[in-house]
């Protein structure tokens, strides 16, 4: 197993978790961030013009990328931690078994 493998697995699990529970909220929050930015730039109440819609879409993409990145990086850290624990526990067990034998 490559030393990067646990982190990659962790990042994949993080991304899967993101898709399962956080994609929709991320799109909603990102879209709302776009609405708020559009309100400041184009004035309120926000009208559904092309630029406003584009800014909201941009916000949704950024929201999804941002929260997805957070889950991926968090997952990679968690995966690496699990990897360190398993690699340090496994040799210890092997050593104990050798001593017993």
């Amino acid at each position: 197993m490559n030393r990067k493998t646990p982190s990659i697995i962790g990042a994949a699990v993080g991304l899967a978790l993101f898709l399962a529970i956080a994609l929709l909220p991320a799109l909603l929050y990102g879209g709302y961030a776009g609405v708020l930015l559009a309100g400041g730039i184009f004035g309120t109440p926000v009208q559904p013009t092309f630029l406003v819609r584009s800014l909201i879409m941009f916000g949704m993409v950024m929201g999804a990328l941002g929260v997805g990145s957070l889950f991926a990086v968090g997952g990679a850290v968690a995966g690496a931690a699990v990897g360190v624990l398993t690699t340090s526990v496994a040799p210890a067990k092997a050593a104990t078994q050798e001593t017993k034998a």
Partner: peptide, 29 residues
């Protein structure tokens, strides 16, 4: 506080995380 929070969080989680961890030459960490 609101506008800067939007900027800071999206910048850190999208741009900083990409440059520091997620770009293909560095991924996963």
């Amino acid at each position: 506080h609101g506008e800067e929070a939007t900027l800071a969080l999206l910048f850190l989680f999208v741009v900083h995380f990409y440059n520091a961890h997620l770009k293909p030459s560095i991924f996963p960490m």
